[in-house]
Design a protein around this nucleic acid. Structure first.
Lengths: 348, 348
DNA sequence: TTGTAAGCGTTATCAC
DNA sequence: GTGATAACGCTTACAA
């Protein structure tokens, strides 16, 4: 660069990030016109061409913060789930991400550790307006949740529950029905000492799957025996293994239903250690149909609760509501589907 | 509400979201003072008290967009990975999320599908300034990547590579060394027909693990035999199963190293289907040490490449650089660690 | 169709 | 220490 060159005003170039002003100046139009072109609003072809070219030339990209501040939309939605490491939620993430992306939204991810306080904080944080909406998976919707949901600063769709006093769009599984069907399946195969390894019973899934288990026994004409129920302290593999271990120490079930697939994988490991053949000695059934359930040995019979579909629906409900705020509240249930594999003793 | 009541100006209350102006007015100070208090800048105790109280009273929460626009910081970082559904990346997400949260940052998630174009788009999108930094996991850093990285609008830390011509902070595994150690382990156990199930070989992990495999054979004094190498078209379970199937159709290896644990889980399933005992007939070793590798049957011997640690370090590097932009470039490697379990024939 | 100009809610730079 | 006030980059009435 020589001293003979004209120095550009700082706004025009330099290492600066180009703004809409840069573009407008270069195209010789007002920022308003530039904005219109950039937002696809009908304009005179020549203006359109000049602005487009100018934007291209300087590599213009709109500033997200400025756009949000003015338009009151961020183009982001958030997904808050109990645990990123759980395949069920990972499935949901994929599903939501796909839809969000297709419709031009960014996805923000948040793992709550299933901590109610954290969930509530997330709801309150919506006031910051860093997202235009939230999909929340909660294992237990308390009264406090209902209150925060009622005053949430942005649309929220809940996956879980549903609470009758909640006012938000909700997507839920029929896990009671799912558990019942699993028991009917086992009963139909002639199993009569059917145990149940549950997760924490104060959670919605824990409570309703337990009910489904009991429903199933009744339908099959089997006596209820609470010593066949064992509770793990989390819906994970290792707690499942330990719970199954405790169960096997005192009982000889000929079948076990686990409240989810991770628990079932843990149980499988305990059964193996105890020298029980699956499905010869013990038929095993899980719930959720995570990808893993297909590759265990033996492959796991499970109840598909439609996680991918629930998540997709939740995302649709959310984006719809963001676009059209005064829709009626919608509550959608997704039907369970029994997926029979070798672990329940049916040759496949 | 009766007509005798004084109507508040719209700015003061109503269903409106309170802004800093609302707070300032209520506390009887200027917005500047309110801002100072709210940002923890030293102020006169009485001002501080009044503003704090006012903010509390109206439930004030700062608007993220306005704050970003003015301060040029978003308080968000992004993590872009090839696939949310892969446990390796899930582990990384947990790790990053933990650190980000502790240091007061939000985490944005993006799944690229290992598509280079998508990765490049993500880098370009940094110009939108919707995040203050990015952690990018890439399976293959091309020339184009190096270029985009050089002109990225925000700090980026790469997990992968490393490319010598890249200028960004980088965290990488020593996967070549890891693969070599796995082979030394198998060789030391007396296995001599050691096969290798690799993922796509044009990727960095694919290429370097292959080199490590060959290194290992050489160290053990075993002849190289390319028909013992089989390539899966993705680092996933099902491709692993199919690749192992092809391998077993033509060869009788007494050990198999898989380029990651998912491939190994697939291979395990193929071995079972082929009636080969693990580890009796075939010793099996994976790489990554994902949580799942502990609960397969038999539990999987694997090379821990430190995904959680790499992710944590990447997050630290990123946040450091955001806070202190003119640090020197840092490249950090994380040592591999062999985790011996039953699948390689060592009693545990 | 285009330009002018008024914000959006903050933070930062000044004087005082 | 505090208060005006000018940005930050953009969208959107409204007027021309």
């Amino acid at each position: 660069m020589t001293s003979q060159e004209t120095y550009p005003t700082p706004d025009e170039t330099a290492g600066q990030v180009p703004t809409i002003t840069t573009v407008a100046r270069l195209a010789n139009v007002s920022v308003a016109s530039a904005s219109r072109v950039l937002n696809g609003i009908r304009t005179n072809p020549s203006t359109l061409a000049r602005v487009t070219e100018a934007a291209e030339a300087v590599g213009y990209v709109p500033n997200a913060a400025a756009r949000s501040l003015r338009s009151r939309r961020t183009g982001q939605i958030a997904f808050a789930m109990p645990d990123v490491a759980n395949p069920v939620y990972t499935t949901m993430v994929s599903s939501i991400q796909e839809l969000a992306r297709a419709r031009g939204w960014r996805l923000l991810l948040h793992s709550t550790g299933a901590d109610p306080e954290d969930e509530l904080a997330m709801l309150r944080d919506l006031k910051h307006r860093f997202v235009d909406g939230l999909i929340l998976v909660s294992l237990h919707l308390s009264e406090a949740h209902a209150e925060e949901l009622a005053r949430a600063a942005a649309p929220v769709v809940v996956i879980g529950g549903p609470r009758s006093d909640a006012i938000t769009d909700t997507v839920h599984a029929y896990s009671r029905k799912g558990a019942r069907e699993a028991i009917l399946h086992l009963g139909g195969l002639g199993r009569s000492r059917i145990a149940f390894v549950n997760g924490p019973q104060h959670t919605t899934p824990g409570a309703s799957r337990r009910r489904g288990y009991l429903d199933g026994l009744r339908f099959c004409g089997l006596a209820r025996d609470d010593s066949l129920i064992e509770v793990a302290d989390d819906f994970m593999i290792e707690p499942g293994r330990r719970a199954a271990e405790r169960l096997l120490e005192r009982e000889r079930p000929d079948a076990i239903l686990c409240a989810n697939d991770l628990l079932a994988i843990g149980a499988l490991s305990a059964l193996r250690a105890a020298g029980r053949d699956v499905p010869g000695d013990v038929a095993l059934v899980g719930m959720d149909n995570i990808p893993l359930s297909e590759v265990t040995w033996p492959p796991l019979t499970t109840v598909d609760l439609g996680s991918a579909e629930r998540a997709r629906i939740a995302a649709e409900l959310l984006l719809d509501r963001i676009e059209t705020p005064d829709l009626e509240r919608r509550v959608v249930g997704v039907e369970p589907r029994l997926v029979v594999r070798a672990s329940s003793g049916v040759p496949v």
